[in-house]
Amino acid sequence: MIRDITLGQYYKKDSIVHSLDPRVKLVATLIFLISLFISTNIFAYILATAYLITAIILCKVPFGFIIRGLKSLLLLLFISIAFNLFLTPGKVVFSFYAINITKEGIILALKMAIRLVYLVIGSSILTLTTTPSKLTDGLEKGLSFLNVIKVPVAEIALMMSIALRFIPTLIEEVDKIMNAQMSRGANFEKGNLIEKAKALIPLLVPLFVSAFKRANDLAYAMESRCYVGDSKRTKLRPLKYKRIDYITYIYLLVFIILIFLTRYIKIDSTLSIMGSFRGALKLYYER
């Protein structure tokens, strides 16, 4: 049934990640995304992988569930790998007719693939462990500093939560309108893409009309309950940091510092350190 669709993809479970303040999770996701894009060498990727694995283990959500989001990404992943693989100039390692695959191409394609996959998994963990309403609460509180430059953060957050609240109502409405139009001969499944798009018009027009009517009614209802639209509102469940949240922040700080430090590790010098270590071993055995 269409009305059984659950909002977002929240996966209910009792875990440390679930219990974290949504602001911490938002910051953690942001830091993870930044770390992916400033990573330049293998050490940074190892760190990021360790970070991701820790999050996956701690959130207790089945791994199969987490990687579900990757399905929709496959095409994008394929295209980006292909472009990087075939179109990067450099040292040719494999040649097939006019196609040259270079060493640089392979490395770049691999980097892009890892970045994309990690990006999706990282943000999936956020949405899997946080309810939509907590997420908007977190955004509201976390971005409240934007009030200084007159961005109506509280209003935007309320709009977001109302939008979320109306999704099931509108899905039901779509269901009703579709049935009504189908009973009068409308066909939403037959035809090519353009015909299908055209068939949506008799669905969308009544949907918009009723959505505007609902918006009008809701505005009355909100006004009658003393809503005036400034940020003096209080919250029934205000967000409060707990000890675990502060500890997580410290971990995040350490992580981002480590990621920055990896930028200063030179692969060559590491190799030469390893090389000289090997040389020393060789010398030792020769003796």
């Binding site: 909002l7 939509p132 309403s133 939560s161 109302i162 979320l164 609240r165 109502t169 009517k213 609902r214 009614d217 809701l218 009355y220 209802a221 909100m222 309950r225 003393c226 809503y227 005036v228 003096k232 509102r233 209080t234 919250k235 029934l236 469940r237 205000p238």
Partner: peptide, 28 residues
């Protein structure tokens, strides 16, 4: 109001009941 669907603001019952009080600045 007439349409019960169009006057509910929040996704959870207690949050909706609290909406008016939140507007008036009540403590949690």
């Amino acid at each position: 109001f007439q349409n019960p669907d169009n006057q509910i603001v929040a996704s959870i019952v207690e949050e909706d009941v609290a909406f008016g009080m939140e507007n008036l600045g009540f403590s949690p």
